[in-house]
Design a binder for these strands. Sequence first.
DNA 1: TTGTCGGCCGATCGCCGACAA
DNA 2: TTGTCGGCGATCGGCCGACAA
Lengths: 226, 226
Amino acid sequence: VDSYVWKACAGTAAKTPAVGSRVYYFPQGHAEQSSSPPDFSAVPCRRPIVLCTVSAVRLLANPDTDEVFAQIALDPRFPPPPPVPVPPDTHDGVGGGGGGVGVVSFAKILTPSDANNGGGFSVPRFCADSIFPGLDFKADPPVQTISVRDVHGTRWEFRHIYRGTPRRHLLTTGWSKFVNCKKLVAGDSIVFMKNEAGELFVGFRRTGRSCGSMGYLPYSSPAGAG
Amino acid sequence: VDSYVWKACAGTAAKTPAVGSRVYYFPQGHAEQSSSPPDFSAVPCRRPIVLCTVSAVRLLANPDTDEVFAQIALDPRFPPPPPVPVPPDTHDGVGGGGGGVGVVSFAKILTPSDANNGGGFSVPRFCADSIFPGLDFKADPPVQTISVRDVHGTRWEFRHIYRGTPRRHLLTTGWSKFVNCKKLVAGDSIVFMKNEAGELFVGFRRTGRSCGSMGYLPYSSPAGAG
DNA sequence: TTGTCGGCCGATCGCCGACAA
DNA sequence: TTGTCGGCGATCGGCCGACAA
């Protein structure tokens, strides 16, 4: 998935460890987060904490809910194996915590009018000015179609119009389809982003808690799968 | 789930073993059916086939897709443990293969007109006569609301009307909601059933193959969970 | 007997400016 | 500047009989 959007959805406080770094694994904490706690009774030589080496980090998103999470593969072997050369990430590497250089983003909490079926999306002035492409203000009304990509890389198109008295920016056609497909409701946050190349991205974060259902990476097959 | 509907969806060729009977378990075959093949390398004393006792059988249905499947718990201990008393099933027991006595059923492959958003469901004459409650043919047009339960026990209501020239039986109001909720398409089969008490049930089978995602029953906790 | 079609009517969707916070 | 509302036109859902296979 796109690391811009992943980080915007996860929030700036969420940080992932760099590949090759050494961390402590707490089985007890892992079990408590799991929806079906595993039975450790048969595992020999259980220890409360395990020193591990991070062998892989993947930024992932649930295909159904768009919930973002990180899959962190740990290698418990000691001494740690020599680091595997990591292919350069497309942006600034998954280990870093900050956003990419030159990326502009804007977040808004969806109002009831934004989330209602009947309406469009009220675009705050700053978002339209600093993120969306400039409109041709000689037209009446000024209008364009903007194309954005979500965390999966899926492309969405919105009609962006500047109309009404007094004038305001709105997203109309395409917006309600996005809201319905993503099952967004009032109170959820939406984030628009523009990278150095001017490409647009969209992400969001839901208000309610979601109980994560992930998978597991076997530590015997490090890094690039397949 | 209701065993009438389960059997109608699974088909008459699908049979489940009786609790207490002894079967052979083939780990290899089990692994091949699984979407993420398990790694047996760490399991000691692997054998190609294992003689087991059936400790529990549950007829289940995927809450999302309505895909039916059986969860069969196996106990590899030898000699087999004394049989656990099984509470009598509501119908004829999950071990049997045949349909219940006095159950009348009728299946139809959905036509494009049946599955289209715009239309209702053309009820074949035999289905209306032998399964649905009798209409009051003095009314013009004869019409009633029928109430059916699906494999989960969820109740669905359909408007059943006898109209048109020439006259024919149709399901109108409520039908398209059912089609949309169940994501039925032309070519899928639908089954209507009536038991001795006159209660109506509905099930269906999809044309396309679905890759099952089930769960596992630990053999250490036989039969009734909780 | 029953599958498909076009007609038609009502419900909903969704775009709009008015207005006020 | 922007959130909400009522208006209203376009679209769609869905019920109907006609007709033919």
